[in-house]
Design a protein around this nucleic acid. Structure first.
Lengths: 143, 143
DNA sequence: AATTACTGTAACAACATTAGTTACAGTAAT
DNA sequence: ATTACTGTAACTAATGTTGTTACAGTAATT
Protein backbone atom coordinates (compact mmCIF):
# COMPACT_ATOMS: atom_id res chain seq x y z
CA UNK A 1 0.00 0.00 0.00
CA UNK A 2 1.04 3.52 -0.72
CA UNK A 3 -0.20 6.92 0.27
CA UNK A 4 -0.96 8.75 -2.95
CA UNK A 5 1.22 11.61 -4.13
CA UNK A 6 -1.84 13.86 -3.74
CA UNK A 7 -0.87 14.31 -0.08
CA UNK A 8 2.63 15.58 -0.94
CA UNK A 9 1.18 17.67 -3.77
CA UNK A 10 -1.42 19.28 -1.50
CA UNK A 11 1.26 20.12 1.08
CA UNK A 12 3.40 21.63 -1.67
CA UNK A 13 0.36 23.55 -2.93
CA UNK A 14 -0.43 25.10 0.42
CA UNK A 15 3.20 25.99 1.15
CA UNK A 16 3.41 27.67 -2.27
CA UNK A 17 0.16 29.60 -1.76
CA UNK A 18 1.52 30.73 1.60
CA UNK A 19 4.94 31.71 0.23
CA UNK A 20 3.70 33.65 -2.78
CA UNK A 21 0.48 35.08 -1.38
CA UNK A 22 0.48 38.81 -2.08
CA UNK A 23 3.62 38.54 -4.23
CA UNK A 24 2.10 36.93 -7.32
CA UNK A 25 -1.37 36.11 -8.50
CA UNK A 26 -1.76 32.47 -7.61
CA UNK A 27 -3.43 30.37 -10.28
CA UNK A 28 -3.50 26.65 -10.94
CA UNK A 29 -1.09 27.34 -13.80
CA UNK A 30 1.34 29.09 -11.46
CA UNK A 31 1.19 26.29 -8.87
CA UNK A 32 1.57 23.66 -11.60
CA UNK A 33 4.88 25.22 -12.57
CA UNK A 34 6.30 25.00 -9.06
CA UNK A 35 5.04 21.47 -8.52
CA UNK A 36 5.80 20.44 -12.10
CA UNK A 37 2.49 18.79 -12.71
CA UNK A 38 -0.55 19.31 -14.93
CA UNK A 39 -2.74 22.29 -13.87
CA UNK A 40 -5.89 20.14 -13.91
CA UNK A 41 -4.40 17.90 -11.22
CA UNK A 42 -3.93 20.99 -9.06
CA UNK A 43 -7.47 22.17 -9.79
CA UNK A 44 -8.84 18.78 -8.71
CA UNK A 45 -6.85 18.87 -5.49
CA UNK A 46 -7.80 22.50 -4.85
CA UNK A 47 -11.41 21.51 -5.34
CA UNK A 48 -10.99 18.88 -2.59
CA UNK A 49 -9.27 21.39 -0.30
CA UNK A 50 -12.13 23.81 -0.92
CA UNK A 51 -14.72 21.19 -0.05
CA UNK A 52 -12.75 20.62 3.16
CA UNK A 53 -12.86 24.37 3.85
CA UNK A 54 -9.10 24.86 3.77
CA UNK A 55 -8.62 27.10 0.76
CA UNK A 56 -10.72 29.78 -0.78
CA UNK A 57 -11.07 30.19 -4.49
CA UNK A 58 -11.25 33.88 -5.11
CA UNK A 59 -12.87 35.03 -8.29
CA UNK A 60 -10.91 34.63 -11.54
CA UNK A 61 -8.17 37.21 -12.03
CA UNK A 62 -7.77 37.47 -8.27
CA UNK A 63 -6.25 34.11 -7.44
CA UNK A 64 -6.38 31.52 -4.71
CA UNK A 65 -6.06 32.36 -1.04
CA UNK A 66 -6.05 30.39 2.19
CA UNK A 67 -9.21 30.17 4.25
CA UNK A 68 -7.50 28.95 7.40
CA UNK A 69 -4.24 29.87 9.09
CA UNK A 70 -1.41 27.36 8.54
CA UNK A 71 -1.39 26.89 12.27
CA UNK A 72 -4.87 25.35 12.05
CA UNK A 73 -4.00 22.84 9.30
CA UNK A 74 -2.23 19.53 9.81
CA UNK A 75 -1.22 16.98 7.19
CA UNK A 76 -3.96 14.76 8.65
CA UNK A 77 -6.51 17.31 7.40
CA UNK A 78 -4.94 17.10 3.94
CA UNK A 79 -4.77 13.32 4.04
CA UNK A 80 -8.49 13.16 4.83
CA UNK A 81 -9.29 15.74 2.15
CA UNK A 82 -7.32 14.25 -0.75
CA UNK A 83 -6.45 10.61 -0.02
CA UNK A 84 -8.75 8.93 2.41
CA UNK A 85 -11.59 7.22 0.54
CA UNK A 86 -12.65 5.08 3.44
CA UNK A 87 -12.79 5.06 7.21
CA UNK A 88 -10.69 1.91 7.64
CA UNK A 89 -7.00 1.62 6.81
CA UNK A 90 -7.00 -2.18 6.82
CA UNK A 91 -8.83 -4.40 4.38
CA UNK A 92 -10.35 -7.59 5.68
CA UNK A 93 -11.53 -10.79 4.02
CA UNK A 94 -15.28 -10.45 4.05
CA UNK A 95 -16.82 -13.70 5.27
CA UNK A 96 -14.58 -15.81 7.49
CA UNK A 97 -16.25 -19.17 8.18
CA UNK A 98 -18.15 -18.89 11.44
CA UNK A 99 -18.15 -22.66 11.85
CA UNK A 100 -14.39 -22.51 12.39
CA UNK A 101 -13.28 -21.23 15.81
CA UNK A 102 -10.61 -19.06 14.18
CA UNK A 103 -12.93 -17.78 11.47
CA UNK A 104 -15.58 -16.98 14.05
CA UNK A 105 -13.27 -14.87 16.25
CA UNK A 106 -10.59 -13.44 13.98
CA UNK A 107 -12.39 -10.09 13.66
CA UNK A 108 -12.76 -9.59 17.42
CA UNK A 109 -9.06 -10.28 17.93
CA UNK A 110 -7.71 -8.17 15.07
CA UNK A 111 -10.03 -5.16 15.11
CA UNK A 112 -8.67 -3.61 18.29
CA UNK A 113 -5.07 -3.88 17.07
CA UNK A 114 -5.92 -2.48 13.65
CA UNK A 115 -7.90 0.36 15.25
CA UNK A 116 -5.04 1.24 17.55
CA UNK A 117 -2.48 1.24 14.73
CA UNK A 118 -4.73 3.38 12.55
CA UNK A 119 -5.42 5.87 15.37
CA UNK A 120 -1.71 6.13 16.06
CA UNK A 121 -0.95 6.64 12.38
CA UNK A 122 -3.57 9.37 12.10
CA UNK A 123 -2.33 11.03 15.25
CA UNK A 124 1.22 11.13 13.83
CA UNK A 125 -0.20 12.88 10.77
CA UNK A 126 -2.06 15.42 12.89
CA UNK A 127 1.12 16.24 14.79
CA UNK A 128 2.57 17.89 11.70
CA UNK A 129 1.26 21.42 11.25
CA UNK A 130 1.57 23.23 7.98
CA UNK A 131 2.90 26.24 9.87
CA UNK A 132 5.83 24.19 11.10
CA UNK A 133 6.60 22.95 7.58
CA UNK A 134 6.41 26.55 6.35
CA UNK A 135 8.90 27.72 8.94
CA UNK A 136 11.20 24.74 8.25
CA UNK A 137 11.30 25.60 4.57
CA UNK A 138 11.81 29.25 5.40
CA UNK A 139 14.86 28.43 7.51
CA UNK A 140 16.39 26.43 4.65
CA UNK A 141 15.72 29.21 2.14
CA UNK A 142 17.33 31.84 4.40
CA UNK A 143 20.40 29.74 5.22
CA UNK B 1 -4.80 4.01 0.57
CA UNK B 2 -5.61 0.65 2.04
CA UNK B 3 -3.59 -2.19 3.44
CA UNK B 4 -4.52 -5.24 1.37
CA UNK B 5 -6.61 -8.02 2.86
CA UNK B 6 -3.61 -10.30 2.32
CA UNK B 7 -2.32 -9.15 5.72
CA UNK B 8 -5.50 -10.20 7.54
CA UNK B 9 -5.62 -13.40 5.49
CA UNK B 10 -2.03 -14.31 6.34
CA UNK B 11 -2.70 -13.71 10.05
CA UNK B 12 -5.80 -15.89 9.84
CA UNK B 13 -3.76 -18.53 7.98
CA UNK B 14 -1.04 -18.71 10.60
CA UNK B 15 -3.51 -18.78 13.50
CA UNK B 16 -5.38 -21.62 11.79
CA UNK B 17 -2.18 -23.59 11.12
CA UNK B 18 -1.29 -23.12 14.76
CA UNK B 19 -4.72 -24.10 16.05
CA UNK B 20 -5.14 -27.23 13.92
CA UNK B 21 -1.54 -28.40 13.73
CA UNK B 22 -1.47 -32.08 14.68
CA UNK B 23 -5.29 -32.28 14.73
CA UNK B 24 -5.93 -32.23 11.01
CA UNK B 25 -3.84 -32.36 7.87
CA UNK B 26 -3.49 -28.76 6.88
CA UNK B 27 -3.86 -28.08 3.17
CA UNK B 28 -4.65 -24.97 1.18
CA UNK B 29 -8.14 -26.42 0.71
CA UNK B 30 -8.63 -26.78 4.46
CA UNK B 31 -7.40 -23.24 5.16
CA UNK B 32 -9.55 -21.88 2.34
CA UNK B 33 -12.63 -23.24 4.09
CA UNK B 34 -11.84 -21.49 7.37
CA UNK B 35 -10.96 -18.23 5.65
CA UNK B 36 -13.73 -18.58 3.05
CA UNK B 37 -11.56 -17.71 0.13
CA UNK B 38 -10.23 -19.45 -3.00
CA UNK B 39 -7.45 -22.02 -2.24
CA UNK B 40 -5.17 -20.49 -4.86
CA UNK B 41 -5.15 -17.20 -2.95
CA UNK B 42 -3.95 -19.13 0.10
CA UNK B 43 -1.32 -20.93 -1.93
CA UNK B 44 0.00 -17.62 -3.24
CA UNK B 45 0.16 -16.17 0.27
CA UNK B 46 1.75 -19.35 1.64
CA UNK B 47 4.31 -19.11 -1.12
CA UNK B 48 5.17 -15.59 0.07
CA UNK B 49 5.34 -16.75 3.70
CA UNK B 50 7.65 -19.57 2.62
CA UNK B 51 9.93 -17.18 0.79
CA UNK B 52 10.03 -15.13 3.98
CA UNK B 53 10.97 -18.29 5.91
CA UNK B 54 7.89 -18.28 8.13
CA UNK B 55 6.10 -21.45 7.07
CA UNK B 56 7.32 -24.77 5.83
CA UNK B 57 5.56 -26.65 3.08
CA UNK B 58 5.82 -30.28 3.97
CA UNK B 59 5.50 -32.76 1.16
CA UNK B 60 2.04 -33.41 -0.27
CA UNK B 61 -0.13 -35.63 1.92
CA UNK B 62 1.68 -34.35 4.99
CA UNK B 63 0.48 -30.77 5.14
CA UNK B 64 1.79 -27.34 6.03
CA UNK B 65 3.66 -26.61 9.25
CA UNK B 66 5.20 -23.54 10.85
CA UNK B 67 8.90 -22.95 10.51
CA UNK B 68 9.13 -20.38 13.29
CA UNK B 69 7.52 -20.11 16.69
CA UNK B 70 4.56 -17.69 16.88
CA UNK B 71 6.58 -15.78 19.43
CA UNK B 72 9.11 -14.91 16.73
CA UNK B 73 6.55 -13.61 14.22
CA UNK B 74 4.95 -10.17 14.26
CA UNK B 75 2.34 -8.75 11.90
CA UNK B 76 5.12 -6.51 10.57
CA UNK B 77 6.85 -9.65 9.24
CA UNK B 78 3.60 -10.62 7.51
CA UNK B 79 3.04 -7.10 6.17
CA UNK B 80 6.52 -7.12 4.63
CA UNK B 81 6.02 -10.64 3.24
CA UNK B 82 2.60 -10.17 1.63
CA UNK B 83 1.84 -6.47 1.19
CA UNK B 84 4.85 -4.25 1.04
CA UNK B 85 5.92 -3.77 -2.57
CA UNK B 86 8.14 -0.83 -1.89
CA UNK B 87 10.37 0.65 0.78
CA UNK B 88 8.51 3.96 1.00
CA UNK B 89 4.97 4.36 2.34
CA UNK B 90 4.48 7.83 0.85
CA UNK B 91 4.34 8.64 -2.83
CA UNK B 92 5.89 11.87 -3.98
CA UNK B 93 5.53 13.97 -7.12
CA UNK B 94 8.67 13.23 -9.06
CA UNK B 95 10.20 16.48 -10.28
CA UNK B 96 9.33 19.55 -8.25
CA UNK B 97 10.64 22.66 -9.99
CA UNK B 98 14.07 23.46 -8.55
CA UNK B 99 13.81 27.06 -9.73
CA UNK B 100 11.04 27.58 -7.20
CA UNK B 101 12.19 27.92 -3.57
CA UNK B 102 9.38 25.65 -2.42
CA UNK B 103 9.94 23.10 -5.20
CA UNK B 104 13.65 23.06 -4.46
CA UNK B 105 13.23 22.31 -0.74
CA UNK B 106 9.96 20.45 -0.35
CA UNK B 107 11.69 17.06 -0.25
CA UNK B 108 14.14 18.05 2.49
CA UNK B 109 11.30 19.34 4.65
CA UNK B 110 8.86 16.44 4.14
CA UNK B 111 11.19 13.45 4.05
CA UNK B 112 12.03 13.44 7.75
CA UNK B 113 8.36 13.65 8.78
CA UNK B 114 7.34 10.93 6.33
CA UNK B 115 10.22 8.73 7.52
CA UNK B 116 9.27 9.19 11.15
CA UNK B 117 5.59 8.39 10.52
CA UNK B 118 6.51 5.30 8.50
CA UNK B 119 8.96 4.06 11.17
CA UNK B 120 6.32 4.56 13.83
CA UNK B 121 3.71 2.75 11.76
CA UNK B 122 6.05 -0.18 11.17
CA UNK B 123 6.99 -0.29 14.82
CA UNK B 124 3.31 -0.49 15.80
CA UNK B 125 2.98 -3.46 13.46
CA UNK B 126 6.00 -5.18 14.98
CA UNK B 127 4.57 -4.76 18.47
CA UNK B 128 1.85 -7.31 17.67
CA UNK B 129 3.14 -10.87 18.01
CA UNK B 130 1.27 -13.77 16.49
CA UNK B 131 1.64 -15.60 19.81
CA UNK B 132 -0.35 -12.85 21.54
CA UNK B 133 -3.10 -13.03 18.91
CA UNK B 134 -3.18 -16.82 19.31
CA UNK B 135 -3.64 -16.54 23.07
CA UNK B 136 -6.28 -13.80 22.66
CA UNK B 137 -8.30 -16.00 20.36
CA UNK B 138 -7.79 -18.95 22.69
CA UNK B 139 -9.23 -16.97 25.59
CA UNK B 140 -12.32 -16.08 23.57
CA UNK B 141 -12.83 -19.69 22.47
CA UNK B 142 -12.55 -20.98 26.04
CA UNK B 143 -14.87 -18.35 27.49
C1' DA C 1 6.30 -47.93 -11.68
C1' DA C 2 1.67 -46.07 -11.30
C1' DT C 3 -1.52 -43.68 -8.50
C1' DT C 4 -2.94 -40.14 -5.59
C1' DA C 5 -3.20 -35.84 -3.30
C1' DC C 6 -1.36 -32.24 -2.94
C1' DT C 7 1.59 -27.57 -4.15
C1' DG C 8 3.48 -23.88 -7.35
C1' DT C 9 2.64 -20.93 -10.80
C1' DA C 10 1.16 -18.99 -15.21
C1' DA C 11 -2.51 -16.81 -17.37
C1' DC C 12 -6.52 -14.48 -17.33
C1' DA C 13 -10.66 -11.38 -15.96
C1' DA C 14 -12.99 -7.83 -13.46
C1' DC C 15 -12.59 -4.00 -10.94
C1' DA C 16 -10.60 0.04 -8.47
C1' DT C 17 -7.27 3.52 -8.08
C1' DT C 18 -3.67 6.58 -9.62
C1' DA C 19 -1.93 9.83 -12.64
C1' DG C 20 -2.14 12.53 -16.57
C1' DT C 21 -4.57 14.85 -20.37
C1' DT C 22 -8.08 17.34 -23.56
C1' DA C 23 -12.01 19.90 -23.92
C1' DC C 24 -15.33 22.98 -22.70
C1' DA C 25 -19.01 25.30 -19.97
C1' DG C 26 -19.36 28.66 -16.22
C1' DT C 27 -18.04 32.92 -13.90
C1' DA C 28 -16.64 37.39 -12.40
C1' DA C 29 -13.57 41.39 -12.91
C1' DT C 30 -12.44 44.56 -16.46
C1' DA D 1 -18.43 41.81 -24.58
C1' DT D 2 -13.90 40.31 -23.47
C1' DT D 3 -10.62 38.06 -20.82
C1' DA D 4 -8.58 34.99 -17.65
C1' DC D 5 -9.42 32.09 -14.97
C1' DT D 6 -11.91 27.69 -12.37
C1' DG D 7 -14.78 23.33 -12.21
C1' DT D 8 -15.67 19.21 -14.06
C1' DA D 9 -16.67 15.50 -17.34
C1' DA D 10 -14.57 12.24 -20.16
C1' DC D 11 -10.92 9.69 -21.53
C1' DT D 12 -6.34 6.99 -21.54
C1' DA D 13 -2.78 4.23 -19.55
C1' DA D 14 -0.59 1.93 -15.94
C1' DT D 15 -0.85 -0.55 -11.81
C1' DG D 16 -2.73 -3.22 -7.91
C1' DT D 17 -6.31 -6.21 -5.86
C1' DT D 18 -9.05 -10.07 -5.76
C1' DG D 19 -10.71 -14.16 -7.64
C1' DT D 20 -10.50 -17.97 -10.98
C1' DT D 21 -9.11 -21.95 -14.26
C1' DA D 22 -5.74 -24.92 -15.75
C1' DC D 23 -1.95 -27.68 -15.47
C1' DA D 24 2.86 -29.20 -14.61
C1' DG D 25 5.67 -30.85 -10.74
C1' DT D 26 6.41 -33.67 -6.64
C1' DA D 27 6.63 -36.99 -3.01
C1' DA D 28 4.27 -40.45 -0.12
C1' DT D 29 1.69 -44.54 -0.90
C1' DT D 30 0.31 -48.64 -3.25
Amino acid sequence: MKISSRLAISIHTILAINAFCGKCKITSEFLATSINIHPVVIRKILSQLNTAGLTQIASPKVGITMNKSLDEITIYDLYIAVDCADESLFNFHSNPNSNCPIGKNIHKVLDCHFDEIQKNFESMLSDVKLSSLASDIDKIIRS
